[in-house]
């Protein structure tokens, strides 16, 4: 517990590949919205300290799958999940499992930056406060500073910690949301098209950030842009019409896809 945490330089983990242990394991996952089946028999492994990109045309079920991993689908009425998803070997759909505890371990960053209408500081401190992570103000300051630093935001907001988080620029807001997620120190971070509402420069900044933080976390990212998947991810999974068509190492998927549909999608034939 008290191990001193240091930031691992990105270069050192770049080579982590097929050898990493599996963190999230999905087997035979089906999701229904009422009568409609949104996901069909998905099997997917997400490995530690890797970025796994979920790609596919709109409505293919990639976001649905993402939201299964921290059970955010629970709040949607009429949504039903079957099959097994485990986090470090623990079934997260087990009836005994505590959703609150799960979500503390699996953080999430959303499509549109959604900072709370609070100060920058309070946004980052929100998670640590509800999870009782800091015994005093000093510890909380430490967590906030480290999280902002890791999200690459500390320098920009150092003088604006008490200003509302909603007053930051779009890219800064999204990095604030990442800092907010990091602050809880989750094992997995889910990102649902985190750059779709941002301009190219802010996007580049976030992509850099993702690559930096993967040393300490496991990241699953849904993206609409194949270039982005190619840039940031080590593994890629292609979804089509609720099915997981193909998953594998990113370079492989983009250079020699096995499935015709994958090929069609990455060459821009549809989607």
């Amino acid at each position: 517990m008290a191990a001193i945490e240091t930031l691992v330089p990105p270069a050192k983990v770049a080579a982590a590949g097929a050898g990493s242990p599996v963190t999230v394991e999905a087997r035979d996952v089906n999701v229904y919205y009422g009568e409609k089946q949104a996901l069909k028999q998905v099997d997917l492994d997400v490995r530690r300290h890797e970025v796994t990109a979920l790609i596919g045309p709109s409505g293919c079920g990639k976001s649905t799958f993402l939201r299964c991993i921290n059970r955010m689908n629970d709040v949607i009425e009429g949504c039903r999940v079957t099959g097994r998803i485990s986090l470090d070997g623990e079934d997260i759909y087990d009836s005994d499992l505590d959703v609150v505890a799960l979500r503390a371990r699996v953080g999430m960053v959303f499509q549109k930056p959604n900072p709370f209408p609070k100060s920058v500081y309070d946004n980052v401190a929100y998670g640590p406060r509800i999870h009782g992570m800091a015994a005093n103000r000093g510890e909380l300051d430490e967590i906030v500073a480290n999280s902002l630093e890791r999200a690459g935001l500390l320098k920009e907001v150092r003088d604006r910690l008490n200003d509302p988080g909603t007053g930051l620029s779009g890219g800064q807001q999204q990095r604030l949301c990442i800092a907010r997620a990091i602050a809880v120190n989750p094992e997995v971070i889910l990102m649902d098209e985190p750059c779709s509402a941002l301009d190219p420069i802010a996007t580049a900044r976030i992509e850099e950030l993702i690559d930096e933080i993967r040393a300490n976390y496991t990241i699953v990212i849904v993206t609409h842009s194949m270039q982005q998947a190619a840039r940031v991810s080590q593994r890629t999974a292609f979804f089509h019409l609720g099915e997981l068509v193909e998953a594998g190492d990113t370079p492989e998927i983009f250079t020699s896809p096995r499935d015709r549909r994958t090929h069609g999608y990455i060459t821009g034939r549809f989607g």
Partner: peptide, 13 residues
């Protein structure tokens, strides 16, 4: 917005 509730729930609140 629902996104704020989602954001909070995703942090384990």
């Amino acid at each position: 917005p629902q996104s704020l509730r989602d954001g909070s729930a995703a942090l384990g609140a």
